[in-house]
Structure formats: C-alpha cells, structure tokens
Amino acid sequence: MARRKLVYEGKAKILYEGPEPGTLVQYFKDDATAFNAEKKATIEGKGVLNNRLSEFFMTGLNNIGVPTHFIKRINMREQLIRSVEIVPLEVIVRNFAAGSMAKRLGMEEGTQLPRPIIEFSYKDDKLGDPLVPEEYIIAFGWASQQDLDDIVALALRVNDYLSGVMYGVGIKLVDFKIEVGRIWENEYMRLIVADEISPDSCRLWDLESGRKLDKDVFRRDLGSLTDAYTEVARRLGVLPSNGPAPMGKPKLIN
C-alpha cells in the first residue's frame, strides 16, 4: 500500500492528501491539549468520538443547507473532506458567559448574554490566538467586509442549529468556535464551515445539573473526558443507549 502524503499535523488532527484532487483525509488523534498546549495528555478513544460527533454535526448542517467541508466518514478515525483555503480566524459564538469572556469582564460563568456574541481570534498558536477586532481583520487582509458579513451569518446559522439539537437532548450550548474555509466553483468563491465541530470546540453543560460535558473537564480536572464525550454522543443517538460503553474504547454505530 502506498504511503499517504502528510499535508498538515495539528494538536488534535492530521490531514493527509485525499484520493481525489481537491480532497483531504482528516484523521482524529487521541491527543488532548489545553492552555495553548501547556497541558497535554493522550486520552484513548477521544479521536474516535470526535470523528463520529463531527460527522453528526457536519451532516446535519449540510442537510439544512449550511455548507461544510465534510464529504463522508471513511472509518472510525478518518473522514473525507474538501480541501479549502482556511480563513486565518477562529470564529467564536457565545450564548452564555464562560471561560475567557467571564474572566475578562468579571462576569459569573453561566450568565445569559443579551444575544449571541461573535468574537474573532487570529489563528496563531505562538501568540495564543489573540482576540482581534474587525478593523484588524480588514486592514491586514485576512478577510473582507463582505467576507465578515457572510461569516457572521454562517456562524449564527450554525448556532441556531447546534442550540436546538443540544437543547433537545438536555444540553445547553454555552459557546463554540468554528473555522471557515474558502472554496472556488469556477470564478465564484464560497465560504463554508471547516475543521471540526465536537466537544473539543464547544462548551456543553447539562441543562439540569450544569455538569460540564466538554473539554473543560480536561482543562479543570473534573473527571473523565471520555465519559463526558460519550455522554454527549449517547444522548445524540451516536452511541447505543443501552449499557455502558467500554472506557476508552467506545462502541460506535456505523
């Protein structure tokens, strides 16, 4: 078997050259990082869960007309995606104050915001992905004003979808981040959702108890990250509801 060509390796995923032009294979690792990779661990089964959960969310978005890079899941850890030019921004959508926002503004975590608030951070691990205003984004050519308008509209549609899906299974969508990519169809450029959507990139709290079901479990040493992600997958129907999944080796439905 020919060895696949490595395109990029990040903290949680690896990208390989895809089987067809304009495609990539995205591999989900078991690595967990926090605080700009100052805290690291390998958590068996995490990549399998994130692959399956991201497939679930990306498929749902595609089905309601929100374009994404997702094509299909290949196996337990890999999915086929469209190759895109990533806009060098993380797009953060906040429904409740938490994390860095709560700290910056001295707000109590869990405070409901008057409306969804969108923030942008510049994608650069060495700089700690700093928050940037729209003026910087336009001045430095990372995106145009029209791009930003389209990105905001895209992010709000993702928020509506995710909020509804999560609420339906008893989970509060506190905040999340997405990345956006550019694709060209002849001379026409489109912006689509890229990277992943998983508990790695969302804050998810149980509606009744407030229990955290996202990467804050790892950040704050609140228990088993695998158990938290498995609970999200089980509620969404990604995992079977009868009987516990083996620790670290969750059984997924094809």
Rank of each mutant, 00 (worst) to 15 (best):
L80Q: 05
K40A: 10
T33E: 01
D124I: 01
S241D: 08
V217E: 08
P130D: 03
T226C: 00
A153F: 04
G22Y: 12
G141E: 10
I253H: 00
D227M: 00
G110Y: 15
K72D: 12
M166E: 03
E109I: 01
E196I: 02
S224M: 02
S54R: 12
D31E: 15
L252A: 00
M166N: 10
V91F: 09
E134S: 09
G223I: 05
E185H: 03
D206K: 13
N75P: 12
L148Y: 11
S201V: 06
Q145S: 09
F70K: 10
K172C: 04
S209E: 11
A12C: 14
S209L: 10
V66N: 09
P244L: 01
L113K: 12
Q145F: 10
D124A: 14
S100F: 13
R234M: 06
A34C: 13
I14S: 08
F120I: 07
C202L: 12
R203V: 05
V132I: 15
N242Q: 04
A34R: 07
I178F: 13
G99W: 15
L225D: 00
R211T: 07
D129S: 03
F56I: 09
L222R: 09
V7Q: 10
Q146P: 00
V87W: 03
D227Y: 05
G210L: 13
T23W: 13
P130Y: 13
R203L: 08
G106S: 10
N51V: 01
P133V: 12
P21T: 06
K72T: 10
V84S: 04
Q112C: 06
T59I: 01
A97M: 12
V84Y: 04
P246E: 08
R203N: 05
A139T: 13
R190K: 15
P21Y: 04
G223V: 06
T42D: 13
P246S: 01
K103Y: 12
A97I: 02
L148W: 10
G164A: 08
Y122S: 01
K123A: 01
P21N: 11
N63K: 15
D129Q: 06
I117R: 04
D214Q: 09
K39V: 14
Y8P: 13
I92S: 00
I253V: 10
E208I: 08
L173A: 07
L162M: 15
K177V: 02
A32T: 05
L148F: 06
T230G: 00
A102S: 15
W184D: 00
T230S: 12
K39N: 14
L222C: 07
D129Y: 06
V165T: 15
L131N: 09
G170Q: 14
G99I: 12
S241A: 10
A139K: 15
H69P: 12
I253G: 00
E78G: 01
S100T: 15
V91M: 06
G47S: 11
K177A: 02
A233P: 14
G237K: 06
K29Y: 13
I86N: 01
A245R: 01
K72G: 01
Q145C: 00
V7T: 04
A32H: 11
P130G: 03
F57V: 07
L204W: 08
